[in-house]
């Protein structure tokens, strides 16, 4: 029998710990496929965050470094400056790269730091149990915005890829989603472009991926996808926001 599809070599054999319906699993797979297709598994150094994806270090087949909350891009900077011949990526959530590590994110973009940052935005703090994130939408209920996020009090969500696309030094900024097979393919393409941007030495690449959190949103996986489409895709700027030639 001819094998037409298999598990990518970019992932280890370890079973994911993610909740049912969480899209981290899809994002892990396409990221790992991108590493394999670009022949980066033996070259890449990944930086794991704090949060739900904190254990991604055991899932990716490449060398990984575990970072403190918000510091993955600084850690990635250190690794890349030490070993420019390696492809360095960070995998971070919205709180990590958009709140506690916002200075690191913007500064790396401004430096044109030649690394690739993957930003998984599910508009909530998943690991700690569903608190407000820098990307929580106005009116969205979380455990620390129980009456819905009130921009008058809690401020507005940050459109991080849009912000970064205006920073001189950023080379490839894309905002994608993994809600449909077509969008999954587009997201994978964006990841590959991000890595290629780095391999060509063009500077900072940042791929924002809208993601669901059925557990903390209190929705079924199918309803969560619908909520993402109706609320997040309409709020955040989507598409390739910057492509440096």
């Amino acid at each position: 029998m001819k094998k037409v599809f298999g598990r990518t070599k970019g992932l280890t054999e370890r079973a994911f710990h993610y909740c049912p319906g969480c899209t981290h699993g899809i994002i892990h797979r396409i990221l790992a496929e991108a590493l394999e297709e670009l022949d980066l598994i033996e070259n890449a150094i990944g930086v794991a965050p704090v949060g739900c994806a904190g254990f991604c270090e055991v899932y990716f087949s490449c060398d990984m470094i575990g970072a403190a909350h918000g510091r993955a891009i600084a850690v990635g900077t250190g690794a890349k400056r030490a070993r420019p011949e390696n492809t360095v990526f960070t995998y971070q959530g919205d709180g990590d790269a958009g709140a506690i590590g916002l200075a690191e994110t913007i500064s790396a973009a401004a430096r044109g730091e030649n690394i690739t940052s993957i930003f998984v935005n599910n508009s909530i703090y998943g690991m700690t149990g569903g608190q407000m994130a820098p990307t929580t939408l106005p009116g969205q209920k979380t455990s620390t915005s129980p009456f819905g996020r009130d921009p008058e009090v809690a401020g507005h969500p940050i459109d991080l890829p849009l912000l970064l696309s205006h920073v001189e030094g950023s080379a490839y900024i894309a905002s994608v989603s993994v809600d449909t097979p077509k969008n999954v393919l587009a997201a994978k393409k964006a990841l590959k472009k991000g890595f290629q941007t780095q391999m060509e030495g063009k500077g900072f690449s940042f791929i924002s991926i809208l993601s669901t959190c059925p557990t903390n949103w209190g929705m079924s996986p199918a309803k969560a996808i619908k909520w993402l489409q109706d609320n997040m895709q309409t709020h955040f700027t989507m598409g390739e926001l910057k492509v440096k030639e």
């Binding site: 150094i45 930086v47 470094i65 970072a67 403190a68 510091r71 600084a74 850690v75 990635g76 900077t77 250190g78 690794a79 890349k80 400056r81 030490a82 070993r83 390696n86 200075a103 690191e104 500064s107």
Partner: peptide
């Protein structure tokens, strides 16, 4: 670095290699 915090975490990343 942009901050002391970033600097020490860059040290961490470099040392890890």
């Amino acid at each position: 670095a942009e901050s002391e915090v970033a600097a020490i975490n860059m040290v961490y990343g470099a040392s890890a290699t």
